[in-house]
């Protein structure tokens, strides 16, 4: 099967106060459609940086990122925004929901950015919320939800847009054990039943036990897979 994402020689060096700090060094990686992959490693190993570069949130210092045969690492700001909008779903560690939106509006927001009519986007958002078992919370605001519920809304937001790839950055880091496990199981189920591709940056051992593939990073290099 052709890879969904291809990464070759990916390098990212941050320059802070004249100091060069390498975050990723010469990383090669392929992600095939339908994968449920974890990128693991200690803090500062480059997990989030790799996820950001794959998702077009940042530009690499060197190397290439390809999405289904299209090279994306040299696209400009607006082209990358369009690429992310059409292809990627993001789940962040801090949930990052829009506080003035209801749960339903948050889940439908990416579809609104795509310009879908209200009825269509709300129907898809409701379906995604129902899939994650939080359909009853649709009218609430994020500050009325628990951490676990907010993270499910974030997953629903990513899922409602039916992206090719969901990139999740430490999705269970702010959740207690039970809530974290439940969220992992939901994501696995979605991967299994809907074929959604997940790449998850994590150092949560409970999550690592449940993925099919783990890519280990250490000091910005792939240390094992």
């Amino acid at each position: 099967m052709d890879p969904l994402v291809t990464v070759r020689g990916l390098t990212k060096i941050y320059r802070v106060d004249g100091q060069q700090t390498p975050a990723l060094r010469d990383v090669d990686l392929d992600i095939t459609p339908g994968e449920f992959t974890a990128i693991a490693g200690p803090s500062g190993s480059g997990k989030s940086t790799l996820l950001h570069l794959i998702g077009g949130l940042d530009h690499p210092t060197a190397g290439e990122v390809w999405l289904q045969g299209q090279r994306i690492d040299r696209l400009d700001h607006n082209a990358l925004a369009q690429l992310r909008l059409q292809n990627f779903g993001f789940v962040f560690q801090a949930y990052n929901l829009i506080p003035v939106f209801t749960v339903l509006e948050n889940a439908a927001f990416v579809l609104e950015l795509r310009g879908l009519p209200r009825q269509q986007r709300e129907a898809r958002a409701r379906r995604a919320l129902a899939d994650l078992g939080i359909g009853a919370l649709a009218a609430r605001r994020p500050n009325q939800l628990s951490g676990g519920e907010q993270q499910r809304v974030a997953v629903a937001r990513a899922l409602a847009a039916e992206p090719k790839l969901i990139l999740a950055d430490e999705p269970t880091a702010n959740l207690d054990g039970v809530t974290g496990l439940a969220l992992i199981d939901e994501m696995r189920r979605l991967n299994r039943e809907q074929g959604t591709t997940f790449v998850i940056a994590t150092h949560d051992p409970r999550l690592l036990e449940r993925v099919r593939r783990t890519v280990y990073l250490e000091d910005g290099r792939i240390a094992g897979a």
Binding site: H77, N78, A81, R84, L85, F90, N96, L113, R114
Partner: peptide
């Protein structure tokens, strides 16, 4: 600023 960052990350263009 963080919220705008999320909106941009999700795919909003500069004009939006």
């Amino acid at each position: 600023t963080r919220e705008f960052g999320v909106v941009i990350a999700l795919g909003a263009r500069r004009g939006r």
